[in-house]
Design a binder for these strands. Sequence first.
DNA 1: TAGGCCATCTGGTCCT
DNA 2: AGGACCAGATGGCCTA
Length: 420
Amino acid sequence: MSLQEMVFLSVSAALDGSSVTPGLKASDMLTSALAERTLESTPTRGPDSPFRPSGAHCKVSTKSQSREPVGRPEWLGHAPGPGRDRQHDRVPDGAREAEEEEEEQEQEEEQEEEDGGPEGDGLPRRRGLRRRRVTQARWDRVRLRRIEANTRERNRMHGLNHALDALRRAVPCPSRTQKLSKIETLRLARNYIWALSEVLSAGKRPDLLAFVQTLCRGLSQPTASLVAGCLQLSARPSGPEPRVEAAFPGRATFDTVYTPYRFRHDAGTGPCASGGHEGGSGVSSAEGGGRPFPAYSAFCGLAATYQPFYERASPECSSPTCDGGALSPPLHYHGIFSLKHEGPSEPEGHSDPDGTRCRFGTCRRFGTCRCAAASGGAALRRCAAADAHVPYDVQLREQFLTAQDQLNIVQDQFYTAFQQ
DNA sequence: TAGGCCATCTGGTCCT
DNA sequence: AGGACCAGATGGCCTA
């Protein structure tokens, strides 16, 4: 903005009566405009701003690694050497002393103005709004606060990301190769809570397909495929009826490493009560496999043991909405969980525009809903196509922890994740 | 190459 | 006044 423009705007504001301090004279406004122009010479926004976003100064070595500055804003002075950790966010040691000196100097100048100026002519100087000069010290102080705020913000976001990482490890998608995005992690966590709650509320052995469908609800197609891939659902003809198994890729073998559950269609295989968690995973937690599906078998056991506290509001609308619904899991379990159940935000069992009744009750975006409901990847679709109504049995390995222990583990993970 | 995702900076707002 | 939180802007990386 040019000086003329600045003066024009200042005068215009004065004429409009907006943001005008009583007693402010045109000369004061001009002085203010000049001071503004001083600031304008080092804008705080835009491509020329010394505070311009860091994108130009950062690079990402890998997607999961934190960024390191590759350049340095000109206004920050010395370029950081290799390995320096955000040294450019520091302020020179003598900055504060210089500021104090500047403050004293400013106070003297202000006193002189009130006394009639350094000439001592005794004539009162202009009164009214007197804009403080933008000294170097003040400018440095502004930058210091900005830098400190940036650091805090950066740390805050790092904490948020750590919490999200913890949440990624808690949800049933321990992919070693593909990291869930933030939004998908939150969606999957929501679905996971919901699915587990449904298991508890139902008080019976869960259906694999419904469980996975609940997990994948509202997820993007790639994420849904990933989740299904982690479960590695596959429909394999085995005798007269299809056979469905769930396994975990990347494990040494299905049986030797932790595998909390196995889904089979074999009649008479062990139900939830025999589910288990054998502890060792062979995959570091940093790789997302430290604690696999910690609660599923636990919930199976609990569901078999305890009766649900209350009945579900609606069998059709007990599932999460496709995206952003206000529903909470239908669960209130002996003080372990105390999750409120809010009513559906939309009429239950509504129909979509083409008249198809929505199975999931509160979907607003049916395209997403269909995608999600039918998602779970090609494997899941194959499974569903084979026989979506086959009462798949669930064979669970021996539980290493008690159901209560595993339930508490899940709670701790979620609480820790959200409290970080 | 477009789009998704991400990290970071930034200024505004609210709270203590 | 200072910190936390938030959302917008920006640019880099990655993938289809």
